[in-house]
Design a protein around this nucleic acid. Sequence first.
DNA 1: CTCCAGTGAA
DNA 2: TTCACGGGAG
Length: 217
Amino acid sequence: MLAGLFERLEATYGDLGWWPARDAFEVAVGAVLTQNTAWRNVERAMAGLTEAGLLDPAAMGDAPHETLAEAIRPAGYFNVKTRRLQALCAAWRAAGGAEGLAARETPSLRAYLLDIHGVGRETADDIVLYAFYRPVFVVDAYTYRILGRYGWLDDEPPYEGLRERLETTLAGTPQAYQHYHAYLVELGKEHCRPRPRCAECPVTDLCGKRGVAAGQG
DNA sequence: CTCCAGTGAA
DNA sequence: TTCACGGGAG
């Protein structure tokens, strides 16, 4: 019963205030910047972009590599992320901006985003869910780790299969999926870490692998 | 599987 | 000092 897990997480965390952004483009930029990067550092990079006047598809897309790289430096991987952001800008403009993208059906939107250099499945689904409010469960490393320990995963199902299975099981609204993903990230950071801290975990009584020796989970 | 890279907590 | 980070490409 996954529903029970998410009910408990909702009771524990409520609204975590995800995803802080002013518009769809800002969500997409944040999604690229946060790849394997702490959100704290993404906030600094976003501030750098605002300060440099680059938080805009045209300005960012036309900026010199060095200029953009310098602005996003705190987020790390600044050279690869600069190329990815500029690929994002090119695709964003070619699609007719946020309006053009919003006009697409969800499968078409996902496919279009996945075609962009630097936009993988999780980044695409972040954008689809948080920028365009489509009902998509964002699967990430936390999802595999938490649900695996929880005892809900058979072994290690492929991304798409797991995503569809979760969406079928939960049948949630976009808002529900926005919260669910935030809950798993929070739980994964605070308790269900690589080395689990089960002692103060809010869902330990529901977990199939509670009491597992810390070190290998 | 290996880079990419800065930042703060443990 | 190591570890971990709202991952993805080559």
